[in-house]
Amino acid sequence: MDEGRKIGEVILDLKNISLRFGGVNALTDISFDVRQHEIRAIIGPNGAGKSSMLNVINGVYRPQEGEIVYLGKHRHDMDTYEAAKSGIARTFQNIALFKGMTVLDNIMTGRNLKMKSNFLLDALYWGPAQREEIAHRRKVEEIIDFLEIQHIRKTPVGRLPYGLQKRVELARALAAEPSILLLDEPMAGMNVEEKQDMCRFILDVNDQLGTTIVLIEHDMGVVMDISDRVVVLDYGRKIADGTPDEVRSNQDVIDAYLGVAH
């Protein structure tokens, strides 16, 4: 399905990441890399540390040990602002939209780092602020078209059904024109049709915009279908890493998912 798509160099390299909360080891000595343009899946049973891993990548959690190499820059940990600034965008497992704002405003927030206007210009509005708003509105409308959510543009997100909220959240992340997109269970709780739509969007984003994608997903069918490489976590440790086929036949992975007979 990905003929013509060129997977490039490593752009994100995680080395020996360990993360603890109090005495609990959330992640232990995890290393893996992400290449440009690929779809990289993180899978594992509940509580394996998948979301923690994403949180480490965009700076919400700071690991005690390890190194993050992103775009050639070596860091001990990320900072959320720096992550956003350098092109890492994400969606959340439990939708983290701004409930009191409309769909349009939510997506516009995704463009905040590209805006130069300050509050004084904003207050005066007519002039630079208006020009900037309109320029960004144009970009946002492209994303709205892309994700087929034109009809709900002016609706407050709190009133939308779950599936559409997930889509709006993806739109907000895309509005930042990220180079890496982190998706935390983008299809959780969706019906088959919604999942198909979401799959199509993810593939289109990857294909047409060239965005690198790191995703966590529980639906194995989806994961095996769309990802290029898969990393498997269990109890905060990495137990496998490779192409979907390699991972599928890995004995440790089978044990982790099905349990081992004692």
């Binding site: 992550a83 600034k85 959340f92 983290a96 701004f98």
Partner: peptide
């Protein structure tokens, strides 16, 4: 509405 998400988008 959601301070963590606000921080994450910059």
């Amino acid at each position: 509405d959601m301070d963590m998400a606000a921080e994450v988008i910059g």
